[in-house]
Design a protein around this nucleic acid. Structure first.
Length: 696
DNA sequence: GAGCACTGC
């Protein structure tokens, strides 16, 4: 990577800071240089480009894009596909006549950093020829931008204003094998668009395993004659180092994990260690165990020291940044992480991976409408992705522990039967794992998806061509909810204006409904704040070593009515203290999160103005706010106990070992009947009955 | 008083 420019100046407030993404990490190792055209540098950039594995496929790629409507590119890590293919297309004239080459990424940081790298490589200022578009940050020029990176969610949004995506000549869906919700939605919609736009070219960048599935999905040739295929496949080899895999079994995970770490530390050469666990609690537990052992070791005068660091998304920002710091040669870095380290971040210098072979995954139960987090064995695809984290810089080693996990994290007796065969550990057990992870589309609440599809003119969502169709019951349940919210009519058609407006909000339908009605309840100012706050995770920061102090500070914001008004309190206090980061630190609040809440609130406010929702304030009366929340969230009502009068509405339910409700507020049961008579009926004895079995 | 994989509009 020659002539690296300082990319920091392109970062805007509110966007993710450097260090989180793999590309950032690469940049941080080089020093900044001024933006001056230098023919020698240009030459060396050209040489660098030609060294990438994808380069020798250049002509073939261009030929395939010319001949097929869709091309599946199996591009392994480090082959250069993301930055090079858009440039080949540009050079071959695919961005002529004002057309744009679009490249989607599942994550915001990836879109920004890849755009940065490409602009750098082309000696261009970001936002002109090369740009990016993500929510809250559009760094592209509608006239000048030829190569545009965007999140796949953003692409789906663009379809709402430009249903045929007319400005694009080619779209490349990167990391399609991850099968995120929005990638899958985009894939289904693009297949439909292709039928109307024969000139639109699609490149799907995927891992080996899924190539055939993608090919069969996009190939419109039914003649059986391969010469008439509309979809081609090309494989580009990667540039990674071999990783040896070892299978070990340990009686208990935590001891097992720390034991293996110590074994590596004592017997293996230099190189950092990355250990995968399933959740925050486990991570903290293993970190403290290791720190204890490291202290013992240093007392015995081990030459090399250990630096043990946790990594998970709920970790305060400054703590997260520590894992990207390069350790001195006399120190071995050990990162204990959740699944965040599988795809979202890359830590340089990792040579050893320890994999518990489990992951916490979202699952959705349509009959109860409960989303839960379930500890599940990982797929083979996931396992090799994790192992690959050891081979980025030089040959590495991966240790898989299949037994210990269950013993430690979950009570063996509570294990689902299908997990029991996994309790012995060997290579054969690895063979029993599913080939790939169930796509998000098949394990999520579909109400937001269906609302979006309806808004995009997909009338019969049950017949939409999903790459992996979701369970029919989940779809029916989502349709029912959308009908109850007034977003769909009797025939399942989008209502105008309610349904149309709900779909425009970048929120789940319940939030949209609550916002759109808040003016009539006389509390739109408060509701927009509450909705914005509920989009932010981990507003309350709890450092593991300061749990009590944090709880003490957090209690100051708590109110009896519940979490919604508590969050309103936090936001208003944050504004009152001039959005001070110092103030946030003193009260154990997530400063970056609160800043994001301000931005989200602004976006929601704009949409509400667009739909002429009156600006009203409850002036301190909590009841109107609570009633308005009920008007959106009536379907999420619960009572604590049969005989109890304590009733609540909640934002979501999370199942771990037990059921936990998040963002809970107490309400009067009579409100449910009053505000959602179509959903609830008052039973004779005064208790409340749901027309569906939704009472927990 | 403990409890919460990871993204995205």
């Amino acid at each position: 990577m020659a002539a690296p420019l300082s990319t920091m100046k392109f970062w805007k407030p509110g966007s993710e800071a450097p260090g989180i993404s793999e590309e950032r990490e690469l940049n941080s190792e080089t020093t900044g240089s001024p933006i001056v055209f230098n023919p020698h540098t240009a030459l060396s950039i050209e040489k660098q480009r030609q060294k990438l594995p994808v380069f020798k496929h250049r002509n073939n790629i261009l030929y395939l894009v010319e001949s097929y409507q869709t091309v599946i590119i199996v591009g392994e890590t480090g082959c250069g596909k993301t930055t090079q293919i858009p440039q080949y297309l540009l050079e071959a004239g695919w961005a002529a006549e004002g057309k744009v080459i679009g490249v989607t990424q599942p994550r915001r940081v990836a879109a920004i950093s890849v755009a940065n790298r490409l602009a750098e490589e082309r000696g261009a200022l970001l936002g002109h020829e090369v740009g990016y578009t993500i929510r809250f940050d559009d760094c592209s020029d509608p006239h000048a931008t030829r190569i545009k990176f965007l999140t796949d969610g953003m692409l789906v949004r663009e379809m709402m204003s430009d249903p045929l995506l007319k400005k694009y000549s080619v779209l490349m869906l990167d990391e399609a094998h991850e099968r995120t919700l929005y990638t899958d939605i985009a894939i289904g919609l693009l297949k439909k668009i292709q039928k109307k736009r024969r000139d639109l070219r699609l490149i799907v960048a995927s891992a080996t395993l899924d190539a055939k599935k993608f090919h069969d999905f996009f190939n419109l040739n039914e003649s059986g004659d391969p010469n008439k295929d509309t979809c081609g496949i090309l494989t580009v080899e990667g540039r990674t180092f071999p990783v040896d895999v070892f299978y070990t079994s340990c009686p208990r995970l935590c001891e097992g994990h720390s034991g293996d770490v110590m074994k590596i530390h004592e017997t293996e050469d230099d190189g950092d260690v990355l250990a995968f666990l399933t959740g925050q609690e486990e991570v903290e537990k293993v970190v403290s165990l290791l720190q204890e052992q490291a202290r013992t070791l240093s007392r015995y005068g081990m030459k090399k020291h250990l630096r043990i660091l946790p990594m998970y998304s709920g970790l305060p920002y400054a703590e997260q940044m520590k894992v990207f710091e390069r350790a001195p040669t006399s120190v071995r870095k050990i990162v204990v992480a959740t699944n965040i380290a599988e795809t979202s971040i890359t830590i340089n210098g990792v040579v050893f991976v320890i994999d518990c072979a489990f992951v916490k995954l979202r699952a959705y139960n349509p009959s109860t409408a409960i989303e839960s987090l379930v500890i599940t064995p990982i797929s083979k695809a996931s396992a090799s992705q994790r192992a690959g984290r050891a081979g980025r810089n030089r040959p590495g080693k991966c240790f898989r522990l299949y037994t210990g996990m269950c013993e430690c994290a979950i009570d063996r007796r509570s294990l689902p039967v299908f997990l029991l065969p996994l309790l012995c550990s060997s290579e054969e057990d690895f063979e029993k794992l599913p080939a790939s992870t169930v796509p998000e589309m098949q394990r999520t609440n579909l109400a937001p998806v269906i609302l979006q599809l309806k808004a995009l003119g997909i009338d019969n969502v049950l017949r939409f061509s999903f790459l992996s169709p979701p369970p029919a019951q989940t779809m029916v349940q989502a349709l029912e909810l959308l009908y109850a919210l007034g977003g769909l009519d009797h025939y399942g058609r989008l209502t105008d204006p309610m349904g149309v407006r709900m779909a425009e909000f970048p929120l789940s339908p319940m939030f949209a409904k609550m916002l759109l009605e808040s003016g009539n309840f006389g509390c739109s100012k408060e509701i927009v704040t509450i909705a914005a706050m509920m989009q932010i995770q981990n507003i309350f920061v709890v450092p593991p070593n300061q749990k009590k102090a944090a709880a003490r500070e957090h209690r100051k914001f708590a109110v009896a009515e519940g979490d919604h008004l508590t969050m309103l309190n936090v936001y208003e206090a944050f504004i009152k203290h001039q959005k001070s980061s110092q103030w946030c630190q003193e009260h154990f609040l997530n400063y970056k999160g609160l800043l994001r809440a301000v931005t989200v609130r602004e976006q929601l406010r704009r949409l509400m103005n667009k739909f002429k929702v009156p600006r009203t304030s409850s002036e301190g009366d909590p009841d109107v706010i609570l009633k308005c929340i009920v008007f959106g969230f009536f379907a999420n009502a619960a009572r604590i106990h049969h005989s109890g009068s304590y009733r609540v509405v909640f934002n979501e339910v999370v199942q771990t070992a037990k059921y936990y409700m998040r963002d809970v507020t107490a309400v009067e049961s009579s409100w449910l009947v009053e505000l959602a008579p179509h959903f609830y009926k008052q039973a004779k004895h005064g208790s409340l009955a749901s027309k569906r079995s939704r009472v927990l």
